[in-house]
Design a protein around this nucleic acid. Sequence first.
DNA 1: TATACTCATCGAAGCGATTCGACTATGCGC
DNA 2: GCGCATAGTCGAATCGCTTCGATGAGTATA
Lengths: 343, 343
Amino acid sequence: MPTMQDVAKHAGVALSTVSYAINGTRPISEETRQRIFTAMEELGYHPNALARGLASKRSRIIALLLPTTKRGLGLTELEFVIGASRTARDLNYHLVLWSTEIRDPDELRQFMQQGLVDGVVLMEIHEQDARVQLLKEINFPFTMIGRCADNSHINHVDINFGQTMQVVVNHLQELGHTHIAFLNHTQEEFTAGYGPAVRTQRHFLEAMAAHNLYGLTRFCESHPEAGYTAVNELLLEDPDLTAIIVMNDQTVPGIMRAVQDRGWRIPDDFSLVAIVSSAQVAEMMTPTITTAEAPAYELARLSTEMLIQQLDGQKKYFSEMLVPCELVVRQSSGARPQERTAR
Amino acid sequence: MPTMQDVAKHAGVALSTVSYAINGTRPISEETRQRIFTAMEELGYHPNALARGLASKRSRIIALLLPTTKRGLGLTELEFVIGASRTARDLNYHLVLWSTEIRDPDELRQFMQQGLVDGVVLMEIHEQDARVQLLKEINFPFTMIGRCADNSHINHVDINFGQTMQVVVNHLQELGHTHIAFLNHTQEEFTAGYGPAVRTQRHFLEAMAAHNLYGLTRFCESHPEAGYTAVNELLLEDPDLTAIIVMNDQTVPGIMRAVQDRGWRIPDDFSLVAIVSSAQVAEMMTPTITTAEAPAYELARLSTEMLIQQLDGQKKYFSEMLVPCELVVRQSSGARPQERTAR
DNA sequence: TATACTCATCGAAGCGATTCGACTATGCGC
DNA sequence: GCGCATAGTCGAATCGCTTCGATGAGTATA
């Protein structure tokens, strides 16, 4: 591998001149620049990332924290990863992936202190997030996909849960539904202050109240059987229920089975809308599912861009960007049934 | 941030002694070692990854190449990413993610020449793979998830497609099926020499021949409608068809719909097995799908371990590891129907 | 014509580690 | 009591770059 010194010799200039030519740090005459670039070309020179990072104290590497969740990672998280990776590449940064326990900020601290990365993108944010605390303390640059209780001076993006819920509840209300349930993540996640669990619940109740509708909520594990049970218990609690909004894709098949086992049909007898969901899953079901689709790629791109702008000093003000899910009406939502034979 | 120099001063030893103590490169007396580690502790010292990398010419960073495919990335790819990331962390390496066009090895070359990573893991391998060519040429350490035409001297892991197909065909044969179809990826991918597409097709035909069964194959796009069409065309070609083996999860709903639209039931009138599939998807369908599940996490772990062993010089012989998919019998495969009313 | 600037370039001092050769003190065989 | 390996430590060179201060040539100002 040729070094900058080699290029300098080959072009007949000083090493520092080559550096200036490459980085544009100081003015270089057009002629010299040409000579240098020709030399680089001929030698097949590429600057060494580590040396550059060491000398400049900017590695041009950022990290995405990939937490382990009990819920398991899904397509949304994959989009986060892909989005961050592409964006980093487009902006001439590298992306490293750090699998960390969300509970244990010490591991994270270890990572930070190595001086490998210039900043990090956080996901799976909780209301009180130890990682956020830590990063604030040591004054390390970061952005978040999600929000916590106090977001002052933190660049972040998140789903606009308020708007999303409004649109979804509107949709069902226009179809005539008056008794609607919301199936949340687990009680555990809610209690832990996991952002989406907390916010959706609140916004659901608000939206329902605004329309004067009768709404109830329930927590639910992340698998079909849990969905099955949930539907039955919800219908026991409110036999007039005609629609469910659910936040977890994996429970959807169970919900549908429970409805069908009552001899009901979707959407004729019962409506279903999945939020923070993905088209891929929605299209796989029969009938296809009406969803509010998570703008996962977009969130990843925005948060990564924010971080890099922050690092490059192009960002003067802190900003929050909220992106709503897009409602895609498919086959699982329909007019409220006039009559219905319950078993 | 304290440096090694600071630690050395604080412990009253030479800088190089600290380095030896940390890396175990040379013997250090127990007493000195204690003094050094105490100093490190007190100062909150952590070695700088970039400096270490520059001096040692080993960054302890590896890359996973995340290609863009027309098929889109799914849960299997997510498992690859997670598996590689966790394994790297466990072995004290960092993982960077490189989103690259699979066609364009120049971009890859750019990445390599920066000297940031010690080695790379490749996925989505094709029979003739430009990236493999390149890496061989410049003699850059790498491993593959997948195989190409010539794998000599390349550490790699792959799905054991032969064994997987045998087990699946056996399963269906034991259930009495004699006319079985295999639904492959697209013609395009097959022609491009995409490993799984090529190998599964060959092994399917071999397994069928070995059992003296009547098998036919077909290419198929990656969405439900394509699956729907495929089933109808296959049944036109062979009305005695009673089972399908499919490699693409996303076509599954279409297949099921096509079968049901004929008034048939799964598995009573028609059997379905999805290969290189995931439990999560299988459990979502009604009926649940019998699958041969891709050992994605395992493949990622193995390939990453191999790479790191290779880098650390612990690997003397080149090795190939083939892991079969695990057959999980669920509700979609059953005995061959005795009679069946086709529409 | 001396003064002051700007433009282009050079040399040297880091960045924070690894690693090589050299040096000292100790223990051992004979 | 001599030579010699070995354990433990030090100092200096090095990795490949960025960046600061200095320098010299050319041009505008007075």
